[in-house]
Amino acid sequence: MANTKTNQVTTKQLHQINRRWLWSSQICWNYEKMMATGYLYTVMPVLKMLYKDDELREMMIMHNQFFNTNPFIGQLIIGMDIAIEEKEGIKSKEAVAGLKTGLMGPFAGVGDTIFGVIIPTIFGSISAYMALRGNPIGAIIWMLVNIGIVFLRYPILKLGYTQGAKIVSEYSERLNLLTDSAILLGLTVVGALIPTVVTAKVPFVYRSGKVVLKLQTILNQIMPGLIPVLLVALVYWMLGRKKVTSTKMIIFVMVLAIVLKALNILG
């Protein structure tokens, strides 16, 4: 393949791209094109190096199209993109546009699950549990872990740049397995979370002559943490229905709490 451009992305530029992605990927997020501006801002130094005038405008327009992915691993796409662009130049326009739209969805799925759900669930559960007992250690460790993750984001760009499209197909099976193992850990922690962080006491007492039955004691004999389980099951079921949003559920649970308190069922 004829290599018309002698321009090559330097390590220094890769660092610059990493910094730009870190600070700008979502900074101009909007309903129209979501992370398009963040992507454009990130690759701008490369565009300016590779293209001039009309070509530059054409490529800016291409990179200014709708884009949305997970910011923790989205730079893998950018790495592949610039590797292709520095080789093929403007000819790669359609290929890059396809690569971006093709990969943003799957990457969002994996990245959101691991960085948006699993890690916050595990650290959030443990450190919130400690925090409610007045212990800040968990929260401080979590903050340090988050700082560590910032640095882990840096090599991902380089990986995309050097390995290109190869990695997506090659590692996908192991990546799924890793995600599954992480989900499994997350669910174990969530299972433990239900009886420990949901506090629902039943003050109801049944009296008949000399017989005094505390409802909470009976419930505990059936299963400790029964009320929290039932509540989670109820909300889980309701969330599966159409038009039920998390915001609506929070309002629902608040009203439910006020009603159950008024009826002396919970207290």
Binding site: V190, L193, I194, V197, V198, T199, A200, K201, P228, L231, V232, L234, V235, Y236, L239, S246, M249, I250, V253, M254, L256, A257, L266
Partner: peptide, 10 residues
């Protein structure tokens, strides 16, 4: 006390 069920269920 019971609002955490929403986060867990989501």
């Amino acid at each position: 006390g019971i609002l955490p069920v929403v986060g867990i269920a989501i």
